[in-house]
Design a protein around this nucleic acid. Structure first.
Length: 850
RNA sequence: GCCCCCGUGGCGGAAUCGGUAGACGCGGCAGACUCAAAAUCUGUUGCCUUCACGGGCGUGCUGGUUCAAGUCCGGCCGGGGGCACCA
């Protein structure tokens, strides 16, 4: 019998699916809907193993849901703006547009070769003017709604990519893409008012039951809500009326020993103007940049301004006012009161500058008089002491009491602060969506009229000059003001590409709508039922998309608040690393293994094998999906991606594993093509079969039940194991009734359908079907065949397994007990002792306690 | 420093309602087929012990709860991730 020819089969079935339009989603249907989406790719030019894994998982879900009777939307598009296109323009002299669209064309072919069940009619790229025109419209709507503003602020500047970055894009003080140490600059930039939704974004997390706990936690921490009290210290003999501070621990107010201002606080600046030493201190704080100081957890430094602050609860109590390097202007009010006994930073500071350390919260099991603070602040619970009218209260009660008094006095207010900052969206780059604003000397910031959208990028730009090509363009930015007609200039910044990806999922519901979204289509399809992508977007894309969805809901574009009802974050694809004797990295294809030793291919030069790490160009531990598809076919790579490793974990790509998958592809094909004569399609097995027939039927229906459950729960690796079990049962079954065998084979083919769709179609055809697996119904397990009448249960003596009994499922406890005790092995283990107790857990276990 | 997750054979991993630990795959070993190889098939594969039957030990370590613990609780050790002066 001929071997399975993956190449031929895959091309053929891809063609068949395409011409019959099997995967087209319709925007109106009596069927229940299911929107399956994987994070769309950046068009780098070729797909990598991470794409292969991500899109295989999504495809399995899409096909599985379709077979289960859902109207499935499974689209694909391109996150097509971004810096690599500009870099290519600079290095290769090719226009970013050409480079991008050529890459898209190449990647589209590769994705199609994976056999993905995608509705390609909905495809778009974010750099299509038809798409970014709608994004500009959304921006203008947000602008009018007050969700967008331009402001001068301390921002993150990436000196390598020559652009600003959002806070979320700074990882350990470095730009997320360039890896350059980020500098702080004061610049005028565009912001989305994401903080307006801070509380809603936080509470909304509770409703996302089908999100990984980890991602919800990361977002929660990123939003960083803290409740506290905002209140003022009056200053003695000072130019300012007072210093406003924020504290989550107002209960410790009687333990205060200083007030500290941020080096960037307005009062600091005011004082520094007249105090050269202070000015030098501030400069010292700024040196080293934001990144280094966090990494080195810089030593606490302070400068005593000489000012005295009056304690808000005691007009006769004066505290020194410092400027301190650890106080951040961007959080709270940029000023704090220090209570060294109960805050580690304050304690470090107080010890250094010899300030009082007075404990005011005493652990409930400690003695007030003898409780002292050493080098560690006490941050736990307890009762108040040394705090006048607060003495004896617990922490919460004391917080309330202080808040009540300061509110009554009109000097304090309970407030909530967030760590989350507004989203900085402007970038000083060419290859992005232009921000549709005109700056007019007379009229200020004027929106580009909607009839003039899209505001297109100019084609003729130079990449050989430093800075923003739009800024350097001779003519583009010079326009007449849409309001007064006077000379004006365009905004030359473009949007962060994360803006593009913040609403594309809504656009897919009707990719060709005139408005940003077609409300009917969005109402039908949204939210995305299952979203799949890498965890690296936990606080980037996934937070921005949640904000955008809320903003769009407010603007009336969309009816949901949350874009993604279900989220799955898949692990990375890793590979061993190889180095030659000179320490140079080697590609896996240049390495071969003989007798457990690695050598340079075709030579005896030894190769050092390093640990499995995320595939990366720099370490050359990459295997291209193309080559695998070429050698073994798409089904093999798909099967590999689903096998063995749970989908949320990192998987290691191995040649042996891929070959094992290929063998299984062939084995399934053989099982079907070498099955011998079978009754025609539609033949039903007899209801009352027994022996080998019954055994195979049971294996068949158990597989249906198990695979259905595992796929629904995204446990692909377990589904794969179940399918191996069924294949093994088929191989092991002796001569069986033809209808029984047909049933088993058909089920096997239907079950692999979502995972190895091409192989499934070829086998389905070989079984005599004229229809497609892609349009077939998912099999339903016969419950009576999933469980058997008898079962084998273990018998323990004193908790140790000593034997097993086969017994009727319906057997009564006494019967089970009797047959357990009748076992020789049990009697031997009892050594003549009389059982004190026999525990029978029906259907599970018997434990004889002696 | 704070927060979160995870430690199971040579490897990836099953078993998560406390109830037969190691399903399924990879790799290994032995055999069949073959002139030979590839492909395929069969058997075997946690460790120790025994000719064998069997027995003992085993889920990072250590205590505990329980008739019964990979699973629950306490304390350690190790690995990974997130946030990092957030008041």
């Amino acid at each position: 019998m001929a071997r399975y020819n993956a190449k031929e089969s895959e091309a053929r079935w891809q063609e068949a699916w395409s011409t019959r339009g099997v995967f087209a989603a319709v925007n109106q249907s009596a069927l229940p809907k299911c929107y399956v989406l994987e994070m769309f790719p950046y068009p780098s030019g070729r797909i990598h193993m991470g794409h292969a894994r991500n899109y295989t998982m999504g495809d399995v879900i899409a096909r599985f849901k379709r077979a289960q009777g859902f109207n499935v939307l499974h689209p694909m598009g391109w996150d097509a703006f971004g810096l690599p296109a500009e870099n290519a323009a600079r290095e290769k002299g090719v226009h970013p547009r050409e480079w991008t669209y050529a890459n898209i064309a190449a990647m589209r072919e590769q994705l199609k070769a994976m056999g993905l069940a995608i509705d390609w009619s909905r495809e778009f790229a974010t750099c299509d003017p038809e798409y970014y025109a709608r994004q500009q419209k959304l921006f203008l709507d947000f602008f009018r709604m007050g969700l967008v503003y331009r402001a001068e602020a301390d921002v993150n500047w990436d000196p390598v990519d020559s652009t600003v970055l959002a806070n979320e894009q700074v990882i350990e003080g470095r730009g997320w893409r360039s890896g350059a140490i980020v500098e702080r600059r004061k610049l005028s930039q565009w912001f989305f008012r994401i903080t307006q939704f801070a509380d809603d974004l936080l509470t909304g997390l509770d409703s996302l039951e089908r999100w990984p706990e980890k991602v919800r936690l990361m977002q929660k921490n990123w939003i960083g809500r803290s409740e506290g009290l905002r209140f003022s210290f009056a200053l003695k003999d000072a130019p300012e009326p007072g210093v406003e501070v924020f504290s989550t621990r107002p209960d410790t107010l009687f333990g205060a020993s200083f007030v500290a201002l941020s080096p960037d606080h307005p009062l600091t600046e005011q004082l520094a103007a007249r105090d050269a030493k202070l000015a030098a201190f501030v400069a010292e704080c700024h040196r080293g940049g934001t990144a280094e100081e966090t990494i080195e957890t810089a030593e606490k430094m302070g400068y005593n301004t000489g000012l005295r602050a009056t304690h808000p609860l005691d007009p006769n109590w004066q505290l020194p006012v410092y400027v301190a390097n650890f106080v951040l202007m961007a959080y709270g009010t940029g000023a704090i009161f220090g209570c060294p006994a109960h805050d580690q930073r304050d304690l470090d500071f107080a010890r250094k500058y010899r300030l009082p350390v007075l404990p005011v919260v005493i652990p409930d099991d400690a003695d007030t008089k003898s409780f002292t603070i050493g080098t560690e602040a006490y941050v736990g619970s307890g009762h108040l002491a040394n705090s006048r009218f607060l003495d004896g209260l617990d922490v919460d009660a004391a917080k309330n009491e202080v808040a009540k008094r300061l509110e009554a006095a009109g000097t304090g207010a309970r407030t909530v602060h967030y760590r989350l900052r507004d989203w900085l969206v402007s970038r000083q780059r060419y290859w992005g969506c232009p921000i549709p604003i005109v700056h007019c000397g007379m009229c200020g910031m004027v929106p580009v009229p909607e009839r003039n959208l899209p505001l297109k990028l100019p084609d003729e730009v130079r990449f050989d000059l430093p800075g923003n090509p739009l800024e350097n363009h001779p003519a583009w930015k010079h326009v007449k003001c849409p309001v007064c007609g006077g000379a004006a200039t365009r905004e030359t910044d473009t949007f962060d590409t994360f803006v593009d990806s913040s609403w594309y999922f809504a656009r897919f519901t009707d990719s060709h709508a005139d408005a940003p979204v077609n409300p009917d289509a969005a109402r039908y399809w949204m939210p995305v039922d299952q979203y799949i992508g890498g965890v690296e977007h936990a606080v980037l894309h996934l937070l921005y998309a949640r904000f955008f969805t809320r903003a769009m809901a407010k603007a009336g574009d969309i009816a949901v608040q949350e874009p993604f009802a279900g989220l799955f974050t898949q692990g990375m694809v890793c590979h061993e690393t190889y180095r030659d004797a000179d320490g140079e990295w080697l590609l896996p294809e240049d390495v071969e293994k003989r007798d457990g030793q690695a050598f340079r291919r075709g030579s005896d030069a030894p190769v050092a094998v390093g640990p499995s790490e995320k595939m990366s160009k720099s370490k050359k531990n990459v295997v291209a999906p193309e080559g695998i598809i070429d050698a073994f076919g798409a089904d093999t790579i798909r099967w590999f991606m689903l096998s063995d490793t749970p989908p949320e974990r990192d998987v290691e790509w191995t040649q042996e594993g891929a070959e094992g998958c290929w063998r299984f592809v062939q084995r399934i094909h053989r099982l079907v093509t070498e099955a011998g004569a079978l009754p025609p399609p539609g033949a039903k097995p007899a209801q009352d079969c027994g022996g080998a027939d019954l055994e195979l039927r049971r294996a068949t229906h158990r597989a249906v039940a198990a695979v259905t459950e595992d796929l629904a729960a995204l446990r692909f690796n377990r589904a794969v194991a179940q399918i191996y079990t069924l294949a093994n049962a088929l191989s092991a079954s002796g001569p069986v009734d033809g209808a029984v065998k047909r049933e088993a084979l058909e089920v096997l083919v239907l079950l692999i359908g979502p995972m190895m769709p091409h192989l499934a179609e070829t086998c389905w055809e070989a079984l005599g079907h004229k229809t497609l697996v892609a349009t077939a119904h998912w099999p339903v397990a016969n419950k009576g065949l999933v469980t058997s009448d008898t079962l084998v249960i273990a018998v323990q003596v004193n908790g140790k397994r000593r034997g097993e009994i086969e017994i009727a499922r319906a057997a009564q406890e006494e019967e089970v007990k009797a047959s357990a005790l009748a076992l020789d092995s049990v009697q031997r283990a009892l050594e003549g002792k009389t059982p004190r107790r026999v525990i029978v857990v029906p259907g599970r276990i018997v434990n004889v306690v002696a």
